[in-house]
């Protein structure tokens, strides 16, 4: 009794091979779609904005006259915003992840918190804006200063930082912590000297990618009322501010009034893209550096 008929296999063979080649082509197409769109975006932005990009533009103050306008204020605003977001999310995010992953007893409360954090990661950013407006700007009466904006942004990316850090901590092999406990190390010594060094590349990669999201985010800042007026440069986290994506947003809105504003927006997008590129490259470099060490 023959279960597999040679004839039947031969008859089906060409169709199978065709499907085999076709599948590769389909996945290639999917990949190229993204690259194509990115290419179009970069081409349009660069061709429109590159002529406006010069030292005066980077270091100048805002102005209603397009040829005199600069984005130094927005660059400084983004810088000070990060001065709030980086320490707050690093400390709260990694701290929460360590607690949930290494200290909390697995149980109902822990899984309740876990579910909520995962859900928070999916909440639209504008909702965080409303929260920031209510809590930081009004209730705590900070006004629309860097601190209020930074805390709002921190809330927005915290869930992502927590989830990514937990993932990184979870992937540290158990046998390493066992070795440490077996030597008489305390839990904190084990976390500090064994678990964190191994998890750090993963944590940092996630944190830096979340920061690049915070740098590009606009909606929450619109809600907490970041002005688009001519502003003095922010000099600390207690000053009023604007950031690069806000600048892009207002210039794009106003391009109906003055066509050159669109070019200014394009030039600002280039600056923002370069900043993001630098951040993401840093993430990759950090990851590779730590991974290569051992």
């Amino acid at each position: 009794m023959e279960y597999i008929s040679t004839n039947r296999v031969a008859r089906k063979m060409s169709a199978r091979l065709l499907l085999n080649n076709l599948s590769k082509f389909i996945f290639l197409l999917a990949t190229f779609f993204g690259i194509f769109v990115l290419g179009v975006l970069i081409y349009r932005v660069v061709s429109q904005g590159i002529g406006w990009l010069n030292v005066d533009f980077l270091t100048g103050r805002l102005s209603t006259q397009a040829d005199r306008a600069g984005i130094m204020g927005a660059i400084l605003g983004t810088f000070w915003l990060m001065m709030v977001v980086v320490p707050v999310t690093m400390f709260l995010g990694i701290g929460t992840a360590i607690y949930l992953e290494l200290y909390a007893k697995k149980g109902r409360l822990q899984s309740f918190i876990q579910t909520n954090i995962s859900n928070l990661a999916g909440v639209p950013s504008i909702v965080y804006g409303i929260l920031g407006l209510t809590v930081f700007v009004r209730t705590l009466d900070f006004g629309n200063i860097v601190l209020a904006g930074g805390l709002t942004m921190s809330l927005l990316i915290l869930p992502i930082v927590i989830v990514v850090s937990q993932e990184a901590l979870r992937s540290v092999p158990q046998h390493l912590s066992e070795a440490s406990y077996g030597m008489g190390a305390t839990k904190w010594q084990t976390i500090q000297k064994v678990i964190l060094p191994v998890a750090l590349p993963g944590i940092l990669t996630g944190a830096i990618l979340s920061l690049s999201r915070a740098i590009g985010e606009t909606a929450p800042l619109v809600v907490i009322g970041i002005p688009a007026l001519l502003l003095p440069f922010p000099g600390s986290i207690l000053d009023k501010f604007t950031v690069l994506p806000m600048q892009i947003y207002y210039w794009t809105l106003d391009s109906s009034l003055m066509a050159e504003y669109a070019n200014l927006a394009a030039a600002t997008i280039i600056v923002l893209l370069v900043a993001l590129l630098i951040l993401n490259s840093t993430a990759i470099i950090i990851r590779n550096k730590f991974q290569k060490r051992y």
């Binding site: 046998h175 390493l176 066992e178 070795a179 440490s180 406990y181 077996g182 191994v198």
Partner: peptide
């Protein structure tokens, strides 16, 4: 554990 060491089934040196 500072007086009692342990060696495990799989070698587990630290990285």
């Amino acid at each position: 554990r500072s007086k009692v060491g342990m060696v495990f089934q799989k070698p587990n040196p630290f990285p």
